[in-house]
Design a protein around this nucleic acid. Structure first.
Lengths: 223, 223
DNA sequence: CCACGATTTTTCCGACATGGAAACTTTGCC
DNA sequence: GGCAAAGTTTCCATGTCGGAAAAATCGTGG
């Protein structure tokens, strides 16, 4: 498997990685308008046509790293102990996954969010990429819970959780309304979701009805 | 409000609707390749350039109807009784919303799913459109629960539920593995999600542990 | 080490999509 | 009716996309 990596294959992967990396860097440093087949190819010193052989669009090139790293999440889920409840697996895996997938650097995440906010094509590529990952997650969940990914709806419902959580968390975090770290936000979000999300439940018949729905996700309730 | 609908505005809306409708019909009847600025413009009897004045892409034109009708969902949520728990609102609104938004005709939904499955651009447009709706839903939820849509994460987390549910349900239903209707599938999905999704929970310490994670969402448990 | 087949990269280029500009038509209003 | 504003159309310049074949590079067996 790892041994069909001759010089040829290594070069191909290196070129792909270099192109993707250059595309990402150009976006972060000079905005998405600076990312063209020409500019990216130039920094890697290949022809623009080669760039297009590897990627169908600049968005695809920019996001290639994230897409690759998304498989980490899938594998991490698969590696959780057999029999562990799915929500526990989420709680264990997602807080780490978010930075791994997004590339560890907060500034880069901010840049990506900013670009995506005003660039429909970038947003579209992200969402379709995530949709593919979601399918893989559904398969893992089905496999681990004994469900049938073809015949059961539940795994697909559950599989939507990680993506939705991460999107919401990243957007929220990028807005700057919190000091919490991304992993912490993911942690609290998963915890809240697992409990059905406190917000929006009717004031419990027991408790003295605190102003309904005032809890803020993403704020630890420390004194 | 309704009175700034002079002849000019009415014609514009009619043209837009006619173009969108023609685009949709062409897709359903002849596949997405038959949908071009030329073909759509021809059936509506305007110039191709006019088509491009209204829509940036054929995908946008095809989905315009769905996008418009998505606001029905948002308004329906807003119209629920004040103080109603969000999950109750979902349970009331989503089963109806799914057919309204998708256009009431099951065959058309199938056609859309088929096209989207093999057409990245179509999928991308759908997802970005839904992302916009999700933002609106988050605002409604925030408004109704007293949360701050800018500062609280919870509404965004909750707002991801309807979209994720509908996507999962439609995909599942379109695969043909069920006889249930779309609204019924939505109903059971919302119910299961509200309870944290039975699947993947450890066998309750009380109950005699039915084979864990075997429940099938979307199958009514009638005898 | 060379040479040949296979794969990748490059050059060249035609087909097509995109959207600006200006002429022309329709609508709103006096 | 007649003028200004808005919408539609024609024309076209520009840029993107990807096919085809030549050129360069790699793997392999003499």
């Amino acid at each position: 498997m790892t041994s069909d990596v001759g010089l040829r294959e290594r070069k191909k992967r290196a070129t792909r990685a270099a192109l993707s990396h250059a595309a990402w860097s150009l976006m972060v440093e000079q905005g998405i308008d600076a990312v063209t087949a020409e500019s990216v190819a130039a920094t890697v010193d290949v022809s623009p046509r080669t760039f297009r052989n590897y990627f169908a669009s600049r968005e695809e090139a920019i996001l290639d790293g994230i897409v690759q790293r998304s498989s980490w999440l899938v594998e991490a889920l698969r590696a959780r102990p057999a029999g562990e409840p799915v929500w526990d697996s989420f709680a264990h895996v997602l807080p780490d996954a978010i930075m791994r997938v997004l590339g560890e650097r907060e500034d880069d995440v901010l840049a990506l969010v900013r670009v995506s906010a005003e660039n429909p094509a970038m947003l579209a590529r992200q969402l379709t990429a995530f949709a593919r990952v979601e399918r893989l997650i559904a398969e893992v969940i089905a496999e681990r819970t004994g469900a049938d990914v073809e015949r059961d709806l539940a795994p697909h419902l559950l599989a939507a959780v990680p993506g939705a959580t991460m999107r919401a968390v990243v957007t929220f975090w990028a807005d700057g309304a919190t000091d919490a770290t991304l992993p912490d936000l993911v942690r609290t979000s998963v915890a809240q979701l697992r409990e059905g999300l406190p917000l929006g439940h009717p004031p419990s018949e027991a408790s003295p009805a605190p102003p309904a729905g005032r809890q803020r996700a993403g704020e630890s309730s420390r004194p």
